[in-house]
Structures are given as structure tokens and as C-alpha cells.
């Protein structure tokens, strides 16, 4: 009786009908005339009595608890304004950073809370140095991390690259095979909505490492 049932997910666009049953409303859906419709382009799902749509596009909106990678765009007396790849800014107080930062510095931090107009108050900041910074569609970040961090662990283990992922779509990579890890992440971004991705990514990384190992890094 405890069989795990497969939950059907299907691609929807705004205005598509999700269900006409009585359900609780999850994110990205709305009700009209007793029916539930999608607000966005995404994957619709009705699971455990909740109808929701997992969006495939959209900018990052700060949420409490999110790890984010920001860039210092203003240095103020009490702290720093960070660009979060979002229409909303993040603010990191001085005491949340163990060293002094300057314009253009890349900082990983956590969203402590969000004010009435969505600006984020940040905490536990750390400056990231060296390495490479890339930006992907923030809606694809969960796929890069994977269930229980499975995809992220796979990427790090296979390539040996340290990867820090911000919920806001910014990813910081450090290590020898950064190029391979980068390509793998962009591949995940393109194919995030498909199945069998884990196997394809494993294969991709193995092939790329092999190719680059043979040729030279130039």
C-alpha cells in the first residue's frame, strides 16, 4: 500500500487548465470559476492535493533562507549593496563579513529576510576570490543541485571542481577542470526539463575530460 506513485508532470503555458478538482494552491497557479490555471510557462503537477507549476523561466526574487551570490555595487557606511541578478537588491551589513570588501567583489551570503518591497537583508557573507563566475537561468538551479544535492555532488566528484551555487542563478567554480564543469552546467540548464539527465551529464563529463586530457588545455 505504500507504493510510490509516479506524479505526472506536464508542460503548460499561461492560461492552461491544471485541474477542476478542489485542491490547495501551490505556487504559480490561480483560481477562476472553481478551476485552477497556470500563470507561467512550466511543469504542472498535482501532488498530495496541491496544484502547482514549476516555472521554467523568470528572474530571481529573493526568498528567506536562499543562498545567493551577489556582486558589490555600492559601498555604504553600514554595509554593502549587492546586485543579486534580480530586480531587487541585497544589503549585507559590515558585521556579516569578516573582511572589507570593495566594488565588484563577489560574495556568497544567505538571505536573512525580505522587506515589504522584496529587498533582501543578507547575512553570513564570504568573499569569493579567483575561480570563475557564471550566470544561468535561476529557475534551472534546482536541477543543477539535484535531489538531495545528487547532481551537484556528481559534478564536483567527476570534475574535481569546487562549485558554489546561488539560488539567484549565479554559480562560482574553482579548480582545474572549470571549463568542463561550466559546459556541463550549461547543458543541464538547456535540458533541465527532461529525464535521464543524470546519465547524460555523467557521459558528457567523462567524454569531455577524456578529450581535453588528450589534447591540450589551449
Amino acid at each position: 500500500m505504500n507504493e510510490k506513485t509516479e506524479v505526472k508532470r506536464w508542460l503548460v503555458v499561461p492560461g492552461d487548465l491544471i485541474t477542476d478538482q478542489k485542491v490547495k494552491l501551490g505556487p504559480n497557479v490561480y483560481v477562476e470559476g472553481g478551476k485552477v490555471y497556470s500563470k507561467v510557462v512550466g511543469l504542472a503537477e498535482v501532488k498530495d492535493g496541491v496544484a502547482r507549476v514549476i516555472p521554467l523561466e523568470g528572474r530571481y526574487i529573493p526568498k528567506e533562507g536562499d543562498p545567493v551570490i551577489g556582486i558589490v555595487v555600492d559601498v555604504k557606511i553600514p554595509g554593502y549593496d549587492l546586485d543579486l541578478n534580480s530586480p531587487y537588491l541585497g544589503f549585507l551589513p559590515n558585521e556579516e563579513l569578516s573582511e572589507e570588501a570593495t566594488y565588484g567583489d563577489v560574495i556568497i551570503a544567505t538571505v536573512k529576510n525580505v522587506d515589504a518591497v522584496r529587498n533582501a537583508l543578507l547575512e553570513k557573507g564570504n568573499i569569493l576570490r579567483g575561480g570563475e563566475l557564471i550566470t544561468i537561468n535561476p529557475k534551472k538551479v534546482p536541477r543543477v543541485i539535484g535531489k538531495k544535492r545528487s547532481m551537484l555532488n556528481l559534478l564536483q566528484n567527476l570534475t574535481g571542481v569546487t562549485i558554489l551555487v546561488g539560488a539567484n542563478g549565479r554559480i562560482w567554480l574553482y579548480g582545474k577542470n572549470v571549463d568542463v564543469a561550466k559546459e556541463a552546467i550549461f547543458k543541464i540548464e538547456q535540458e533541465a526539463h527532461t529525464s535521464g539527465l543524470t546519465d547524460r551529464i555523467t557521459k558528457f563529463i567523462e567524454e569531455e575530460l577524456h578529450e581535453r586530457g588528450e589534447g591540450n588545455q589551449a
Partner: peptide
């Protein structure tokens, strides 16, 4: 607009 992920009632 839908491609940008802007939530909408319909297209």
C-alpha cells in the same frame, strides 16, 4: 512576456 516568465492569466 510568457517567455520571460512574467505571470499572466492567459496569453
Amino acid at each position: 512576456l510568457a517567455d520571460a516568465g512574467i505571470p499572466m492569466r492567459d496569453i
